[in-house]
Amino acid sequence: MDILDILADKKVLYAEDEKGIRKHITEVLELFFDKVVAVEDGAEAAYEMEVGSYDVLMFDICMPNLDGLEAIKKIRKKDKKIPVVILSAHTEEEYLWKAVELKITKYLVKPYDKQSLVDALKIVALELVDNNLEIQLKNGCIYNPVKKIVCEGSKDIQLTLKESRLLEYFIKRESQSVTFDDIGEYLWDIEMPTKEAIKSVVKELRKKIGKECIKNVYGIGYMLEF
């Protein structure tokens, strides 16, 4: 079982101004994540955060236009939970303290090796599922975010990418109503899907985890109940 599989359906925003490094690391991240968006400075990163939705951030500190820490500060005002990994050449304490204030998941000092990068990604993965690898659902089903499997007694049901993403999105927002728009924006990238498309995904998920888990909120969307 590989915890890193949690990331397999996740989107990461990667900011690094050195072209070479950016290229190599983007290729590496693509091995783990469903989607990798690489940008070359802080300002672009902040813009990307405005227009897209991401599960994980990986930022260099020293970047032109907007320094990585500043960009994170901006993002943190809206999103307090998103895991952030910093990849920096700076070892000065000052930066570390700032990083701590910004609730950084991991601070990687350049040059880093494979192991420390993988470890960092693992911590990120665990954080994404609140360190819970067996999530109890309402009808006695257990969801495994690593394998993306729902266990019902002795029967394992594999979830598709969209389904697992949707389920984890619901889990993160348990007992909160989630709108069609939220779902559409998170699951689809560029063009907004039709309401029908969203409804069909929800319907598929309900089939696998039991109807009672996902409640309809009339006129707005859905809500996950435990």
């Binding site: 490094i21 190599h24 050449a89 040059p111 880093y112 494979k114 993988v118």
Partner: peptide, 16 residues
């Protein structure tokens, strides 16, 4: 630091 980082990122890349 920069070329070292790049080298290390190449190595990570290849290894993975």
């Amino acid at each position: 630091r920069q070329p070292l980082t790049e080298l290390s990122s190449i190595l990570i890349n290849m290894e993975l």
